[in-house]
Simulated assay, not measured.
Amino acid sequence: MIRITDLRHKLLDIPDLSLVARHIAVIGPNGSGKTTLLSVCAGLEEPKRGRVQILGKPPSAAKIGWVGEFPDRTLLFSRVYDEIASTPRFRHYPCTRADELVRAAAEAVGIVHLLDKKVSALSGGEKALVGLAAAVVDNPEVLILDEADSHLDAGTAKRVHRIVRESPAAHVLWCTQSMDAAAEADFILFMDGGRVRHHGTPDEVFSALEGTCFYPTIWRLRS
């Protein structure tokens, strides 16, 4: 469970929220507080007031994988292999175990052929996949993605969506601008002005958003 209590931080104003679903999509207009919420849940920001609990513990104590919207801002190492290996190395895993994890993550994401490449030589989509592999390499309890699919071509975005769906993480918290992708989630948060205005299943949330730009295209075609 992700439990949020009396959260006040920057724009955020979330008095009480409990999330038990596995795949949770976070949607809403630009500037609505989505990225700030994800940053607080990931432990990247400490809230000014209130508390966030991830699986019964603070975010700093949880095993969290993070993928941001702009990989260039978060990739730290010059070689793809070293970027993916950073988490196992920081956790002092034996070299053989770290290598197993790196190659398994690269295989899952489909970037084994990039392991010896320089990060600077990669395309934007390839960098996003490297960031995703680095996030899932040590089987995080919670996987958090902040619009990781925003700047990807259709094929790469589809691959990211598949990997996210297949993640064994207890929770996947994903901010996305793709309403079609959000429609595949188990649970949706619709944010506006720092508040959660709607939450529930895709049917529940999108029924309240019908006629807006947040209604999924595939649902428009269906109806």
Rank of each mutant, 00 (worst) to 15 (best):
E147V: 06
L114Y: 03
V109Q: 06
L115P: 02
A108R: 14
V119P: 12
E166K: 05
K118M: 11
D186V: 09
A98F: 09
I84T: 07
D116E: 14
W174H: 05
A133C: 10
D186C: 09
V130Q: 05
S78E: 12
S86Q: 15
D116G: 13
V80N: 08
D116N: 12
D180W: 09
T156Q: 08
A106D: 00
E147K: 02
R79D: 11
A135R: 08
W66K: 09
Y93D: 07
S123F: 01
E184C: 00
A98V: 13
H113P: 02
I163E: 13
I111K: 02
H151Y: 11
V67P: 15
L75M: 10
C95Q: 15
V80G: 06
L145C: 08
D149T: 10
D99H: 07
A133E: 05
D116V: 07
L114P: 01
I188N: 04
F190V: 03
R89E: 14
D116L: 04
V160N: 00
D72H: 11
E100P: 02
T156P: 13
R162N: 09
H161I: 05
M191E: 05
Y93G: 05
A185E: 09
D82C: 10
L152P: 15
V80T: 09
D72C: 11
G194Y: 00
V130C: 11
D99E: 12
T87S: 05
V160M: 01
R79F: 12
A98Q: 06
L129V: 01
D186S: 11
A108S: 13
A128V: 00
E166P: 01
R91H: 13
G155F: 06
I188S: 09
I84M: 08
E141V: 06
G125Q: 06
G194C: 06
G131Q: 00
K158Y: 10
F190N: 00
A135G: 05
A133P: 10
R89M: 15
F70N: 15
R91V: 00
I84G: 05
F70I: 15
L145P: 03
D186E: 13
